[in-house]
Simulated scan of single mutants.
Amino acid sequence: MIDLHAHSTRSDGRLTPGALVARAAEAGVTTFALTDHDTIDGLDEARTAANTHDITFIDGVEVSVTWQRRTLHVVGLAFDRGNAALTEGLATLQQVRRDRAKRIAAKIEKLGVADAWSRAQALAAAGQITRPHFARLLIEDGVCRNNNQAFKKHLRPGRDAHVTVEWASLDDAVAWIQGAGGIAVLAHPFGYGFSAAWRRRALAAFAQAGGDALEICTGTTDRQQEITAARDAAQHGLAGSAGSDFHAPEQFWLGLGRLRALPGGLPAVWHDPRFPGADAAN
């Protein structure tokens, strides 16, 4: 069982890298990638846990991209973590994230949240400060009832606590990953709220940038979406990938490794020669 997209406390997940891998093992996952947002800080802990649980571990990251004034996510798999261009690029994105977090903190303090910056730092602990941390503060201080309301009313684009930033370019993200010997995957094509036309434009731009694969099966896709994504991938000569995009145990509607098989005929990213154990992964 394969799951190539999941998050830990090093970004916006709720489980530590070690606990996340243990949960994946309990779910029967045999090949697993940790893909935290714009950071590889959790990979060592996750790999140690994977060795304990006899899981094939794949180094991963999810790179934030600005394209056509919209945000895309490109998952990198099986790269050299020591590559200078990749590590420098991720360091730049981490600084963008810190600057954004300070600006969000100032905005939600105006909404009635006390000491937002210091409290967000405490929630993030060793990881990065992300929008879900601010959502938790909005809930704790009674400004919002739940996470969905926090994003819908305050944190999503166009709302009063949203902060627009410039992430990596699509070309740079793909180049960083491939320059480090890795595989570039466009994540969750149905997860951006795009129309069908914009989804196709984004995929075409990704293919033109030299991307390798498209995430077909996720924790929230239905079979018709997966068939559509597989057709789109084939049109652009892209392989297919699969990942739950797991963040927290509270996501009862999805689970680690709970993914359908890729639609027939589409080459799988885990058969790419760059993928560790390519012939053995199934």
Rank of each mutant, 00 (worst) to 15 (best):
I2S: 02
D3F: 11
G13D: 07
G18L: 04
A22Q: 10
G28C: 10
G28L: 08
A33H: 04
A33Q: 11
D36G: 05
D41Y: 03
L43H: 12
E45W: 06
R47D: 15
T48V: 13
A50V: 13
F57G: 04
F57L: 11
I58C: 11
V61N: 10
V61I: 10
S64T: 13
V65H: 01
W67K: 00
V74T: 02
F79Y: 06
D80Q: 05
R81W: 04
L86G: 01
L86T: 04
G89K: 02
L93W: 03
Q94G: 13
R97S: 09
R98M: 08
D99P: 00
R100H: 10
A101Q: 11
I108V: 15
E109A: 07
A114E: 12
R119E: 14
A124K: 07
A126P: 05
I129M: 10
R136W: 03
D141A: 05
D141H: 15
G142H: 06
V143G: 00
N148E: 10
N148M: 09
A150C: 00
A150P: 01
K153T: 09
H154S: 02
L155D: 08
R159K: 14
D160L: 09
L170D: 00
V174A: 00
W176H: 05
A180V: 03
G182R: 03
L186W: 04
P189K: 04
P189V: 08
G193Y: 06
S195N: 10
A197Q: 14
A202R: 00
A204I: 00
A205Y: 01
A205F: 00
A207V: 06
Q208L: 02
G210K: 01
L214F: 10
E215P: 05
E215T: 03
C217D: 12
C217V: 15
Q224P: 00
E226G: 01
T228Q: 13
T228K: 08
A229H: 12
D232P: 00
D232Q: 12
A234T: 11
H236E: 13
G237R: 09
G237S: 04
L238A: 12
G240H: 09
S241K: 08
G243K: 05
S244E: 02
Q251I: 02
Q251W: 04
F252L: 13
F252N: 11
F252D: 13
L256F: 05
G257F: 08
R258G: 03
R258T: 13
L259I: 07
R260C: 07
L262M: 04
G265P: 13
W270F: 11
H271E: 11
D272V: 08
R274Y: 07
D279M: 07
D279E: 14
